[in-house]
Amino acid sequence: SKTSNTIRVFLPNKQRTVVNVRNGMSLHDCLMKALKVRG
């Protein structure tokens, strides 16, 4: 089974995003990807 960790990230202006960290990806990469999608 694939394991994925879901991390809630609290952003300024009362924004919130959820990042799924996959195996083999660093938290930083996942964060940058999530913020790019939002931006």
Rank of each mutant, 00 (worst) to 15 (best):
1 S>H: 14
1 S>A: 05
1 S>I: 06
1 S>C: 12
1 S>G: 13
1 S>L: 09
1 S>Q: 15
1 S>P: 15
1 S>N: 14
1 S>R: 13
1 S>T: 14
2 K>T: 13
2 K>Q: 15
2 K>N: 14
2 K>V: 05
2 K>E: 09
2 K>M: 11
2 K>G: 15
2 K>R: 10
3 T>N: 08
3 T>I: 11
3 T>A: 15
3 T>P: 13
3 T>S: 08
4 S>T: 15
4 S>G: 10
4 S>V: 05
4 S>I: 10
4 S>D: 15
4 S>N: 11
4 S>R: 14
4 S>C: 11
5 N>S: 15
5 N>G: 05
5 N>H: 11
5 N>T: 09
5 N>Y: 10
5 N>D: 10
5 N>V: 15
5 N>K: 10
5 N>I: 07
6 T>M: 11
6 T>P: 07
6 T>K: 06
6 T>V: 15
6 T>R: 13
6 T>S: 12
6 T>L: 02
6 T>A: 08
7 I>L: 12
7 I>V: 09
7 I>F: 09
7 I>P: 03
7 I>N: 01
7 I>D: 05
7 I>M: 12
7 I>S: 00
7 I>T: 03
8 R>S: 04
8 R>G: 02
8 R>P: 02
8 R>C: 08
8 R>L: 09
8 R>H: 06
9 V>E: 00
9 V>L: 02
9 V>G: 01
9 V>M: 02
9 V>K: 05
9 V>T: 15
9 V>A: 12
10 F>Y: 08
10 F>I: 02
10 F>H: 14
10 F>S: 13
10 F>C: 05
10 F>V: 03
10 F>L: 06
10 F>P: 05
10 F>T: 05
11 L>R: 00
11 L>M: 08
11 L>P: 00
11 L>V: 04
11 L>Q: 00
12 P>A: 02
12 P>R: 01
12 P>L: 01
12 P>S: 01
12 P>T: 03
12 P>M: 05
12 P>Q: 02
13 N>I: 08
13 N>T: 09
13 N>D: 10
13 N>S: 10
13 N>Y: 08
13 N>C: 06
13 N>K: 11
13 N>G: 03
13 N>H: 04
14 K>M: 10
14 K>S: 05
14 K>I: 04
14 K>E: 08
14 K>R: 09
14 K>Q: 06
14 K>N: 14
14 K>W: 06
14 K>T: 07
15 Q>E: 15
15 Q>L: 02
15 Q>H: 01
15 Q>K: 02
15 Q>P: 01
15 Q>R: 01
16 R>L: 06
16 R>G: 04
16 R>P: 01
16 R>S: 06
16 R>C: 07
16 R>H: 11
17 T>R: 05
17 T>S: 09
17 T>I: 00
17 T>A: 06
17 T>P: 00
17 T>N: 02
17 T>F: 05
18 V>D: 01
18 V>G: 03
18 V>F: 03
18 V>I: 13
18 V>E: 03
18 V>L: 04
18 V>A: 10
18 V>T: 14
19 V>F: 12
19 V>A: 10
19 V>L: 10
19 V>D: 00
19 V>T: 07
19 V>G: 01
19 V>E: 05
19 V>I: 11
20 N>K: 13
20 N>T: 06
20 N>S: 08
20 N>I: 12
20 N>D: 06
20 N>E: 06
20 N>H: 11
20 N>Y: 12
21 V>L: 07
21 V>F: 13
21 V>G: 14
21 V>I: 05
21 V>S: 06
21 V>M: 04
21 V>E: 00
21 V>A: 13
22 R>L: 14
22 R>F: 03
22 R>P: 14
22 R>H: 12
22 R>C: 09
22 R>S: 08
22 R>D: 02
22 R>N: 15
22 R>G: 09
23 N>H: 09
23 N>I: 08
23 N>C: 15
23 N>T: 12
23 N>Y: 12
23 N>D: 12
23 N>S: 10
23 N>K: 11
24 G>C: 14
24 G>R: 11
24 G>S: 14
24 G>D: 07
24 G>Y: 05
24 G>A: 08
24 G>V: 15
25 M>V: 13
25 M>K: 13
25 M>I: 10
25 M>L: 12
25 M>R: 12
25 M>T: 13
25 M>E: 03
26 S>N: 11
26 S>R: 08
26 S>I: 15
26 S>D: 02
26 S>T: 15
26 S>G: 09
26 S>C: 14
26 S>H: 05
27 L>R: 01
27 L>K: 03
27 L>V: 15
27 L>M: 13
27 L>Q: 00
27 L>P: 00
28 H>N: 09
28 H>L: 10
28 H>Y: 11
28 H>R: 12
28 H>D: 13
28 H>C: 14
28 H>S: 03
28 H>Q: 14
28 H>P: 01
29 D>N: 14
29 D>Y: 10
29 D>H: 06
29 D>V: 11
29 D>R: 06
29 D>G: 12
29 D>A: 09
29 D>E: 07
30 C>W: 00
30 C>F: 04
30 C>I: 06
30 C>R: 03
30 C>S: 12
30 C>G: 08
30 C>Y: 03
31 L>T: 05
31 L>R: 00
31 L>A: 06
31 L>V: 07
31 L>Q: 00
31 L>M: 08
31 L>P: 00
32 M>K: 08
32 M>R: 07
32 M>S: 05
32 M>T: 11
32 M>L: 13
32 M>I: 09
32 M>V: 11
32 M>A: 10
33 K>R: 10
33 K>M: 05
33 K>D: 03
33 K>Q: 03
33 K>T: 02
33 K>N: 04
33 K>I: 02
33 K>E: 01
33 K>L: 05
33 K>G: 02
34 A>T: 04
34 A>V: 03
34 A>G: 07
34 A>E: 02
34 A>S: 13
34 A>P: 07
35 L>M: 12
35 L>Q: 01
35 L>R: 00
35 L>P: 00
35 L>A: 05
35 L>V: 06
36 K>E: 06
36 K>D: 06
36 K>Q: 11
36 K>I: 10
36 K>M: 06
36 K>T: 06
36 K>S: 06
36 K>N: 15
36 K>R: 09
37 V>W: 06
37 V>E: 02
37 V>G: 03
37 V>A: 08
37 V>L: 08
37 V>M: 13
38 R>C: 00
38 R>H: 01
38 R>P: 01
38 R>S: 01
38 R>Q: 05
38 R>Y: 05
38 R>L: 02
38 R>G: 00
39 G>E: 04
39 G>R: 05
39 G>S: 13
39 G>A: 09
39 G>C: 09
39 G>V: 04
39 G>D: 14
